[in-house]
Write a protein that binds this DNA or RNA. Structure first.
Length: 259
DNA sequence: ATGACTTGCGCGGCAAGA
């Protein structure tokens, strides 16, 4: 079972790259973030033509998440815990897997900058809601992958200039503390289960030659429940995607789980 | 160096991203 996640930074700008990725990597499940469009504008026909089922939670201009799956899926949109939250940042699916299922949560966690703003308050509140929801899901004791753009740099080895990012909403102590609380519920950070290496980046800014200088961040993650972590075979960051024409500023990251 | 990039919206420059 191959599960991938990719912040595409506008799915309409990335449709050709997305189709090419599906053909080359053939993920069983692909989670997408930052669609930047409503469901009606999503390139559904192009994706379905590749043999994928599509579940979209869209929003005009901002945010937007989707789950693509080779097999039909049951889905629910929205992160519980705040009925007044109208930002499209979470969608969940139940994917058939042999005699059992895989549950997949696809998330686009708020950026939160600057730290002294209501945006940061929203980020922290969103992380609290995610923790509460994740705790409920873990109690099901299923194979579960919680993945997406977390907008969290877990550790100094995950950023090219830790000191320079100390007060950024992606790396601030409170942000990292809440991420650790989430992990402590019982998740395995898939990448960290296979390597302790630094510079395992998934994002490079478009500006100031960040890609050329390898000034990156590790902010896209796949968190595994114990039942999923038991089946972990490999983790791959599709770094080469950043060097292609018209790239997203994020690259896909994926896991292979033993069938 | 008023720098530097890419989106959406919509047609002129903002807002947002990270």
């Amino acid at each position: 079972m191959r599960v991938a996640t990719w912040n595409v930074n506008s799915v309409r700008q990335r449709t050709q790259a997305l189709v090419a990725y599906l053909r080359e990597v053939k993920p069983d499940v692909l989670c997408l973030q930052e669609l930047k469009c409503v469901e009606e504008a999503f390139p559904r026909l192009e994706i379905e033509a590749e043999g994928y089922n599509v579940a979209v939670h869209g929003q005009k201009t901002y945010n937007g998440v989707a789950i693509l799956s080779k097999t039909p899926i049951e889905t629910s949109a929205g992160l519980p815990g705040d009925d007044g939250d109208d930002q499209a940042r979470y969608i969940e699916a139940i994917v058939p897997w042999g005699k059992t299922v895989l549950r997949v949560g696809c998330l686009y966690l708020p950026n939160g900058n600057p730290v002294s703003s209501d945006k940061y308050d929203y980020k922290l509140a969103w992380m609290d809601r995610l923790k509460a929801h994740a705790k409920k899901l873990l109690a099901y004791e299923e194979r579960l992958v919680l993945c997406g753009d977390f907008n969290v740099i877990p550790d100094a080895r995950d950023v090219y200039d830790p000191a320079g990012w100390a007060n950024d909403a992606l790396f601030a102590p409170k942000t990292r503390e809440k991420f650790r609380e989430l992990l402590a519920l019982g998740f395995t950070d898939a990448l960290r289960a296979v390597t302790d290496a630094d510079k395992q980046y998934t994002f490079w800014d478009y500006q100031a030659g960040a890609w050329q200088k390898n000034n990156g961040l590790r902010i896209d993650h796949l968190l595994l429940s114990p039942q999923a972590a038991d089946r972990l075979q490999s983790v791959t960051i599709d770094r080469d995607m950043r060097a292609k024409d018209k790239p997203s500023d994020h690259v896909p990251i994926r896991v292979d789980l033993k069938d």
